[in-house]
């Protein structure tokens, strides 16, 4: 039996009102220990108010091989951005 504890990804909410952000990873035997270890390792300078831990092998990622097909098509949809539209200066609050 391997005793290498699984890897977990750690996400920390820096303060209320902000999203959880990925800060790094660590090893822990289970979820209860992972969240505690994350507290000790990643918030010992007061960096957070809330922690998520996710088993690294539970993350489904987009494939780098498909990145052109995945992300390039979004590159030319300029009409999704507000700066695409010209409106007269006197029209306020747009």
């Amino acid at each position: 039996m391997t005793s290498q504890w699984p890897l977990w990804e750690v996400f920390v909410r820096a303060k209320r009102g902000l999203s959880h952000i990925h800060v790094g990873s660590l090893h822990a035997p289970d979820a209860a220990m992972a969240v505690r270890n994350a507290r000790d390792v990643y918030t010992r300078r007061g960096e957070g108010v809330s922690i998520w831990v996710v088993p690294s092998d539970q993350i489904t990622a987009s494939s780098p091989d498909e990145k052109d097909a995945f992300f390039d098509p979004a590159g030319d949809k300029v009409y999704r951005h507000p700066t695409f539209y010209e409106v007269p200066a006197e029209a306020k609050h747009l």
Binding site: H27, A28, R36, N37, D40, V41, R44
Partner: peptide, 11 residues
């Protein structure tokens, strides 16, 4: 026993 525990015990 593990690095994570070094950090915890020091805390």
């Amino acid at each position: 026993p593990e690095l994570e525990e070094d950090v915890a015990l020091a805390n």
